[in-house]
Design a protein around this nucleic acid. Structure first.
Lengths: 235, 235
DNA sequence: TCGGAACAGTTACAGTCTATAACGCAAGCT
DNA sequence: AGCTTGCGTTATAGACTGTAACTGTTCCGA
């Protein structure tokens, strides 16, 4: 919370912004992104119409802010879950726990997850900002796969990730310090594969595609993480 | 194409509907679902505004139709890919090929894939219709995993699928005839897991989350299918 | 062949929403 | 005190969905 001790004006402004976002989130939960209407938000906050444009440049800007928040929130959910694990937790159990935390977050607030993963908003362009957030979500997974021994099936991915890290210095600078025990490529491969696995299982569940089959989300996701654990020889 | 030989009126009607959908798809490709505007469609087709409502009850109805089409199209893409494989193709190679076909379809027309997987349209409720289509996509995968030997990691999913097939008779009636070589639960587990894997990898790619890492989509997806193949002991 | 039903299309309009313009008012600094 | 900056207002333009009321056309049976 740096910079909170600003002028009273700035404080009030920040508070109003928060209030607006709060109402926007409620509307989002009720009717999806399409239901987020500035005019109705304004009325609910006690302002009248165009006043909102003092706080957000456009509807897209507001939604972008919500996306950013959601990403950051998910990232902290995952990393606090990682911190909460006892130090002697096995990599396999860690993978399960991290994925479980991610799923729990998503299931608890599907609309926000859909905001992250779903169809990009109309003309929305995800800048480096989003990539940073994605990295933040992936970060705890790097430690899980650090020093793992990839099977033949995933080796192509490892090679690709290694090449990526060699090409893109910012990725290398991010990944290498966090993988002291082995090659950054291996850990990156594990993390990205885990991300993809989670995206699949959680996305299907949140979109309601598992309706009939009775609470499949958890079982499916753990199975996927176990499969991944096998592929990387995790304990 | 049953029922094509109808009255000239019905034929004309069907043709106009198709034309409308064509324009809608173009708009969709250019600016996402939000860019699909009935008024502009009408103008482009040569009609004026409200005339479209003779052909589609509402904008939602039009989008629903597009979703249905996309699903069906994807399903035939996958099943023709399956038919094109030589009979002696190994299950593992089959899994790769099917997933590859799915990905190829999605990458070639991302907007349509996002229509299928993305955020449900505002108040959209997927009826039994969509489930049927999802089944059609999954169907070729059943044969791939029929008679497989699931590892410990995926066994919980197998159990859950078995239970599901026992509970839901329509699923059983669909799956059992297509899995002569083993338990329907195993094949269902394989198919659903494959669906989830594909959803993850393709979804991330189509949403552009692999930007920097240089054409990761194909490598990642095949790796995931191989991992799944290992988990089911596929040849 | 005639006459009515069903259909395809039109213009006019109500309502919702985003976004801009022009203007007033109060807080805060110098 | 006076000026600036920021917050808020009303009025308005423009895009879009969807309805109403009305007109012409095609089809089909009597």
């Amino acid at each position: 919370m740096a910079g909170t001790a600003q002028s009273p004006r700035a404080r009030y402004r920040e508070q109003t912004r928060a209030e607006i976002k709060e109402v926007a989130l409620r509307q989002l939960a009720e009717g999806g992104t399409a239901a987020v209407a500035l005019v109705r938000i304004a009325k609910e906050v006690g302002l009248s119409g165009p006043a909102l444009y003092r706080y957000f440049d456009s509807r897209d800007a507001l939604l972008t802010d919500l996306i950013r928040d959601a990403y950051a929130d998910l990232a902290t959910a995952v990393s606090t879950a990682a911190d909460a694990l006892p130090p002697d937790t096995s990599p396999r159990a860690r993978a399960r726990a991290l994925a479980g935390a991610c799923r729990a977050w998503a299931v608890a607030q599907p609309h926000r997850y859909l905001l992250i993963e779903g169809t990009p908003v109309p003309g929305y362009t995800a800048p480096a900002d989003t990539l940073d957030s994605a990295r933040a979500v992936l970060e705890p997974f790097l430690a899980v796969f650090d020093g793992a021994e990839p099977s033949a099936a995933v080796r192509p991915v490892v090679e690709q990730m290694t090449a990526w890290a060699e090409r893109d210095t910012t990725v290398a600078q991010w990944a290498r310090p966090r993988t002291p025990g082995g090659s950054a490529g291996v850990a990156l491969a594990g993390a990205v594969l885990a991300w993809s696995h989670m995206h699949g299982a959680i996305g299907l569940e949140v979109s309601g595609q598992f309706e009939g089959m009775g609470h499949g989300g958890d079982t499916l996701l753990t199975a996927q993480m176990d499969v991944l654990g096998d592929a990387f020889g995790l304990d």
